[in-house]
């Protein structure tokens, strides 16, 4: 690609005046409200200006997507990323790039004749606009990723599957069950069933605020999926109001349900061939003691 003379002049303008432009830039930037230390701004500004000088010399100023701008884009991405993670606003982040306009424009004005200056101003203005937009986009992308990751973490956190006994797992559900969460819950439960070889899964809904038709459907889907894999489900913790709602809605919960998690565990133990016995102080079970007394 043929580089125009104007572009070469522009590149020289940046490269030759790097130190001065940087100083002016930081001064302009520092007048605005900022939380970035002078040192940090200086280091970032220097790198960016240097990379920009090279990119303008080699690449097309109208296309910051070209490989010549790789370094510039990398620097801006890294910088937007760290700003986003530190909780800066998008405008605070973009201001850094936009405040480069003034020192650059001044330099153009003082070095070129009127006609060249107009062309250079236009080229530089559109270049900085592109870079500013790129910064905002990179910022937004980081924020989106952050939100997504937090959402996933919350989903993971809110659906632990706990092993209660050999072959018995429990899933204490807390919060509203929408279809997205049901998906995560179901997957967690089924994977735990495979890992632990559980025969019985207890779904405790004490922490579920409301059960409407949709939530009931989600619960039933989870129960059916567990059954397909060979594990039985018991639902526990149905509060009185929720029991009434379920009946009023006419939802058929064809699943074994118990009032409390403790009752469900007792049933699960019984089904897997175990009993719970109270032990007296001497460490023997009441049953054993009774047998001894009889004997």
């Amino acid at each position: 690609m043929a580089k125009s003379a104007a572009q070469g002049a522009l590149a020289r303008l940046i490269t030759d005046g790097e130190a001065e432009i940087l100083a002016d830039w930081l001064r302009t930037f520092a007048t605005g409200e900022t939380r970035i230390s002078e040192q940090e701004a200086k280091a970032q500004g220097k790198d960016l200006l240097h990379a920009l000088g090279k990119a303008v010399a080699d690449g097309n100023v109208a296309d910051i997507g070209s490989p010549d701008y790789d370094e510039v884009r990398d620097l801006l991405t890294g910088f937007s990323r760290s700003r986003a993670l530190q909780g800066f606003s998008p405008s605070e982040t973009a201001t850094f790039v936009f405040s480069l306009k003034q020192p650059l424009f001044e330099r153009i004005r003082s070095t070129a004749d009127v006609k060249t200056a107009a062309d250079q101003l236009w080229a530089m203005s559109s270049l900085l606009d592109q870079l500013g937009m790129f910064t905002v986009e990179a910022f937004q992308k980081t924020r989106d990723e952050l939100i997504m990751r937090q959402r996933e973490e919350i989903e993971e956190l809110s659906t632990p599957v706990v092993k209660l006994w050999e072959g018995i797992v429990a899933l204490p559900l807390i919060g509203t069950l929408d279809s997205g969460r049901t998906q995560v819950v179901m997957q967690n439960l089924l994977e735990t069933i495979v890992q632990t070889g559980a025969e019985i899964a207890i779904l405790d809904i004490t922490g579920v605020p409301t059960v409407d038709t949709l939530v009931a459907q989600h619960l039933l889907k989870t129960v059916s999926a567990a059954r397909l894999m060979g594990a039985d489900c018991i639902i526990s913790g149905i509060r009185p109001q929720i029991a009434q709602t379920i009946v009023q809605l006419g939802v058929q919960l064809n699943v074994v349900s118990k009032a409390t998690l403790a009752d469900a565990l007792a049933l699960a133990l019984k089904r897997t061939g175990r009993t719970v016995e109270k032990v007296n102080k001497s460490g023997r079970s009441d049953g054993a003691l009774a047998a001894e007394m009889r004997g």
């Binding site: 997957q187 069933i193 495979v194 070889g197 559980a198 889907k221 397909l228 060979g230």
Partner: peptide
């Protein structure tokens, strides 16, 4: 039956009620 298969079957509406299952 694999977990992802079980999830898909349920979504498809096939709970296979008459079939016994084991892990």
């Amino acid at each position: 039956m694999r977990p992802e298969v079980a999830i898909t079957l349920v979504e498809l509406g096939l709970g296979l009620p008459g079939v016994k299952t084991a892990l």
